[in-house]
Each structure stands twice: as structure tokens, then as C-alpha cells.
Design a protein around this nucleic acid. Structure first.
Lengths: 289, 289
DNA sequence: TAGTGGTCTAGACCACGTT
DNA sequence: ACGTGGTCTAGACCACTAA
């Protein structure tokens, strides 16, 4: 007699049930011999995830399809619902599945077009490569809001993106008399200028900011210490280097520069806005997915 | 008499215990009156997360400090250990904490310098904004590897990053006679060219690729369907637009362009390498953190 | 060896969507 | 009304780390 187990790649559960049944203590003593197999038992939720991924990659489950319910999978894999729940929750965090309460769990559209980039602390990055890091302060002073150029002031006043952590409405108007700390500095690796940083900080939110020596203290590090940051928005653009940037980075005016701009929020207000300019030929953002 | 509840921001648990105790059915009937308060009860794990975050932001718990054990927190918040575990697991996934089995749970270094960027499918993005999307195929043909320019061929042969999902060593050499599919096309939104895409594909890994009509089928979408992608590497740079790009995007030669390059891997080989060029003044990568 | 986190159970009540 | 996922319990065994 032949048994076919189509659709059931790996539902076996290596002596799980027996082990966790604290009620079945009768048989537990004389059965422990059965499986001395040394291979580390992969966590059940992992095996479930892998099985689901196989079903998707093989095409058996197409994008948009409903997959079996938590109850059904729990029974199939002979595990508790919580374990299945963990597998499904992680897969939906990984955007392989999506879940709708009351409806079910579905296969998501495959989206390997999504690229996740990580932009890091430049000082730490330079030091990590073994190069000598130096920060040169170009200017550093406290001004009243009315002295800040309107486009910059706007970015200190309202979010630049619609889906920002803070809604436009909840923003409060800035007074002309508000104090803004302004710092401009150059980050240098082995003598080569790598980044020109222009930063504006709401002085009322980070009182001691302008007194720091930014050739020693990293601006971001200090802000992170002082203000409980809640989120931020950023943009990455390729721009023609304006004169001030060209001078700072030792470039020709109009040369391509990578500009990373970032707003950071705390307590419903913009704590800081920063422009980070990089020479196009000596800086890139990279990573893996 | 005065009771002080220092260090205990929100350990109260809104009638949780009673509700879940199916044993305490004696008192359940005449006590339900107590809290008709309509405010939606936030999940317990959320309240625990928020409490921990407050402890960190207030400076009570410093980076590197051990925080109370799961058992202790479970008791403090009057919840089960699994619930505390969920809160701590999520916070460590969010890099607020880190955990070491056998040692404890610690406050991580705050790293809001890390910016995560998401680059998406441009066709879908354009359509999502309500603009009319069009793809114009510039060229499309199959060539032997020896005809591909050496720098491009290298990117089809080996990973461009050290921390790529595939190690350099495991890479196999490419034969001159290997077939490469090459496609160049322009992505247009409401008549304005937004992206110039140059793509090379290992023809042996994606057989039908070159026969597609890429004015209809998105290159990435097709590849995702055909090959089980395992990962990728990318770089983002600001470059001066070369002539071919300038023509395609209607730019001046040398104008700043945002270049996103990406390798994608499958089965230990590079499936595809793509250069995506964008006019600096009409394209930006943005997001929130 | 004692204490930590990692995983798991076999139930439970609830909010939500579909019918 | 019913079935789905969301959350939670009060235990349990295990692997790991440190004393």
C-alpha cells in the first residue's frame, strides 16, 4: 500500500507533542530512548515559515491567495495556535503575507523592487574604515528665526512629507523671535572632505546645543542624547553643487552632489533640519536587500 | 496616609487579571459594573513598550544598562511572561534594546542616525500618483558576454559589495560565450521622462526574458515572477549625466543625475544588474524613520 | 548551579468582516 | 451568527551565561 503526502512537505513535528504534554508523564520515562538524534531541532515557527515560503516560491500559493487559517495550520503542523501566529506575524512583517482581521491571511505581491537603504553616522563610518576622521567647524551661531532663510525656516516649521510622523495640522507656527542654532561643518577623512553638513536646531528644545565643540562632539550624537527623538523624514537627491558646497568639498561649482536632507521630530515639533552634501564621485549610499 | 508610586508610571492593568481568570467566575458577575470606561484598552504589550521607552527617554535607564527581567516585568505589570516577552522582542527588533540569552536585556545605543530608505517600483509609483505611465523601449537584444563592456560584465559576474549575500569566493567565472540579455528603456510620467533604465540579465537563468514586450511588462516584475530572487546589493550615487542618459532624460550633458544601481542574486549567481538614472531636479528618494 | 532569555502549550476572550 | 486574526494566560522545558 502506498501513501502519498502531496501538499504536506514537512508537517512532522519531531516529538514535540510528547515533550510538552506534562500530563502524559506515564509514558515519558520509557520513551525518551526513541530520538537521540543530535541534529538541533529547528524552532517550530521557523519550519512553518519555511514551509509557507516553499509553497509561495513553488507557485502553489499565488499572490492574493488566502492561505490556511491559523487553526488549520496549527493542526497540520501539530503545534499550538500561538506558534503558528508567530510564524504568520513574522512573515507579514517581512511583507511576504498580509493579514486582515476577520478575513484571513493572504500572499502579498512579491516586491523585491523595494530597496532598503541605511544611511549612517558618517563619523562612525569613517572611523570604522580605519581612516583618520576630522570635523572642521565652518560656522556656529545662534540666530532669531527671522534671520533664517524662508525655505529652511519652513523645514524647521512643518514636515516636508505628507506621510511624516507628524501631521501638518498639529504644527504650531514659529515666532520670528524664536531662537535657532545654526552650524555648518565639514567632515574629513584622511584629509579629504567627504561631507558638508548644514544644520539648524530649535534652540528652545535643545538648550545647550550651540555651546558644544563640534570638532569633537558629533552633532547627531549630541541631539540623540538630549532629545527623545520620535521620528523623521528625509530625502535623497542629486543636485548641482552650489558655490558654498563646492568650496567646502573642493569641487567645481555645478558638479554633481548627493544631498541627503533630514528632519527629526520630537514632541510634535521639528528638533532639527540638516542638509548633508557629498561629492558625487567620492560618496555613495549602498547596502543589501 | 500618602502613598508614593515612584518608578511605577503605569503598572495598573485595567481589570485584565479578572477577565482572563476563568476560574474566578464567582465574582465576575457582580463586578463588571466597575469599569464601563469606554476608552479602548491599549494592548498590554503596547503599554509595557511605552513604559520602557519612557524609562529610556527620561534617562532613568541609560544605554548599556540591564533592564528588569521578564519575570520581574511580568509581575510589575501583572501580565504573563509571554506578554512581556512580546514587548521586549519588538523593542529589540526596533533596536531599542538588545537581548542576550543567559545574561539579560540591555538598553541599546540610540542610533537615530540610521536612515532607512525604500526605493520602489517606478511604474507602480507613477501610476499611484494618478499620472499616465508609459515605457519606451530604446533597445533590446541578446549578446554574448564578450560583447558586454568589462565593467558591466564584472557586475554580472561578482558582487559589488563585500557584505553581499553571496561571497566572492563562491562565484563562478563567466564564459565569453555566455548569453546576456540587454534592455534599455525610458520610464515616462505624463510625457516627462523620469527614469532611464539599463538592464542586463543572465539569459541562461531567465530564458524568456528577451522576448517580452517591455513597453507593457515591467522588467522587475517579470524577473521576480521568473526567478526566485534571494537578495541583492545596490548603490545610490550622484553622477554627471553622460550623453546617452542626457538624451534619454532630456537633460544637459553633465547635469546631476541620481543613479541607483542594483544587482540581484539567485542560486548563487547574479541574475540581473540594472542602472536606473534619474534627472536630479525631478526625482528624489524619500521616506520616514 | 542559579538565573536569564527562547520557545512552546492548550486553552481563553475579544474585535472585526463576512454572511 | 460565525469564523477570522489579535491578544493573553499560567504554566512548561530548554539553551545559554555567569557566579
Amino acid at each position: 500500500m502506498l501513501l502519498k503526502f502531496t501538499y504536506c512537505d514537512d508537517c512532522y513535528s519531531p516529538l514535540k507533542k510528547a515533550l510538552y504534554k506534562n500530563k502524559s508523564s506515564i509514558m515519558s520515562k520509557n520513551k525518551t530512548i526513541v530520538s537521540k538524534a543530535k541534529r538541533k531541532p529547528k524552532p517550530a515557527y521557523q519550519r512553518i515559515k519555511e514551509s509557507i515560503l516553499r509553497n509561495i516560491h513553488s507557485g502553489r500559493w499565488q499572490a492574493g491567495d488566502v492561505i490556511p487559517t491559523e487553526h488549520a495550520l496549527a493542526e497540520k503542523f501539530a503545534v499550538s495556535r500561538m506558534t503558528v501566529n508567530r510564524a504568520l506575524k513574522e512573515l507579514s512583517e517581512e511583507r511576504v503575507l498580509y493579514r486582515r482581521q476577520g478575513s484571513g491571511t493572504f500572499v502579498a505581491q512579491q516586491q523585491y523592487n523595494h530597496t532598503v537603504v541605511e544611511v549612517r553616522n558618517i563619523a562612525a563610518d569613517i572611523k570604522a574604515t580605519g581612516k583618520q576622521y576630522k570635523a572642521q567647524v565652518v560656522s556656529q551661531h545662534r540666530v532669531v528665526a527671522s534671520e533664517v532663510s524662508p525655505p529652511i525656516l519652513a523645514l524647521l516649521t512643518q514636515p516636508m512629507l505628507d506621510d511624516s510622523p507628524i501631521s501638518q495640522k498639529s504644527f504650531q507656527q514659529r515666532e520670528d523671535s524664536d531662537l535657532i542654532d545654526e552650524v555648518k561643518l565639514i567632515h574629513i577623512a584622511d584629509g579629504k572632505p567627504l561631507q558638508y553638513e548644514e544644520r539648524w536646531v530649535d534652540a528652545s528644545l535643545v538648550p545647550g546645543f550651540i555651546e558644544q565643540d563640534f570638532s569633537i562632539v558629533n552633532t547627531s550624537d549630541y541631539l540623540i542624547q538630549q532629545a527623545p527623538l520620535q521620528g523623521g523624514s528625509y530625502t535623497i537627491r542629486a543636485v548641482a553643487a552650489p558655490k558654498k558646497v563646492a568650496q567646502a568639498l573642493d569641487l567645481a561649482v555645478g558638479a554633481p552632489a548627493l544631498l541627503l536632507s533630514r528632519q527629526t521630530f520630537s514632541a510634535g515639533r521639528v528638533v532639527t533640519f540638516v542638509n548633508m552634501w557629498h561629492a558625487g564621485d567620492s560618496y555613495q549610499i549602498s547596502g543589501t536587500l
